[in-house]
Simulated scan of single mutants.
Amino acid sequence: MKKLLLLALLAQTAAAEEAPSDGPPGPPSRWGLGVGAVASDSPYAGEGTRVMPVPLISYQGEKFFFQGIRAGWQFVRTDAFEFAAIAQFKFDGFDIKDLSRQQLAANGLDYRLLEDRDDSLDAGVTAKWSGMAGEIELELLTDVTDKSGGQQFSLQYGYPLHWGQTMVTPNVGVTWLSDDTANYYYGTLDKEVARGAIDYKPDAATIPHVGVNVMRSFGRNWSAFAFLKYSVLPDEIKDSPFLEPDSNGSASILIGVSRNF
């Protein structure tokens, strides 16, 4: 569930930057404040579906920006291309006590042999190309805290559709996890195997996803939005003993409202 904070805290800035405006021109907005709610159907054993309210805070300067749990420096920012160095928290960790002991046991895992998975701080670069054919976003991150010691590469394509002050952006993409990243969050650690846990290491994995973003502006400063995403789990991950049996995917949705200042 914690990983959805990243989606929620980044969404308010996306809404502020992308939603069409029906107000008069004026100085660019620097601050954004809002509130939202995020829900997810977690594939991890016993987590189920959860709903959580979240605050949304962002800042955009000439070069420096932060979006809740992400901060960065933009080297290039034009209508057609953006390129930035970023650092952000990765909320893919989990506590063993939050998982179902019965379901872990059914998957062959004794919770007493297991350890929590920690969150991390990732750093890397992000780039975005925009044009008549749509938008392409690329992101390359590495774990600088050495929790997993791995990397993550994401590529997404979206095509914005405008209806007055409403914008709908269907999107598709893939996220590649290095073997270190996939093994840490979905496999058993060497120290756990040494205690008697089953040895499962999924190696590198590619996770495709589909989604849609809906944004609606109200005047120059207010916007409402909803982000829906469904990720399809590859065999390397859905066979993990940490997951619910027959977990083929993971769905999440965010709805919120924000105001720019």
Rank of each mutant, 00 (worst) to 15 (best):
P53T: 15
V54W: 12
V54M: 15
L56D: 03
I57W: 04
Y59E: 12
E62G: 15
E62C: 15
E62V: 15
F65V: 12
F66K: 00
Q67H: 11
G68E: 03
G72K: 07
G72T: 08
F81M: 07
F83C: 12
I86K: 13
A87W: 05
F89S: 07
F91D: 06
G93D: 12
F94P: 03
F94S: 03
D95W: 01
D95Y: 01
K97W: 04
D98Y: 02
L99F: 13
A105N: 10
N107C: 08
G108T: 10
D110A: 13
Y111F: 12
R112F: 10
L113H: 09
L113R: 10
E115P: 02
D116N: 05
D118I: 06
S120K: 10
D122A: 14
D122K: 13
A123Q: 10
T126A: 15
T126D: 15
A127W: 04
K128G: 11
K128P: 08
W129Q: 13
S130D: 06
G134S: 07
E139P: 02
L140F: 06
L140I: 05
V144N: 11
D146C: 11
K147N: 15
S148N: 01
S148R: 00
F153R: 07
S154N: 13
Y157C: 08
Y157I: 07
Y159C: 13
G164Q: 09
Q165A: 13
Q165V: 12
T169F: 08
N171F: 10
V172K: 10
V172S: 12
G173V: 00
V174C: 07
V174L: 10
T175A: 09
W176L: 02
L177W: 14
D179W: 04
D180A: 10
G187H: 02
D190Y: 09
K191G: 05
K191S: 09
K191V: 06
E192H: 05
V193Y: 06
V193Q: 08
V193K: 08
A194T: 11
D199N: 15
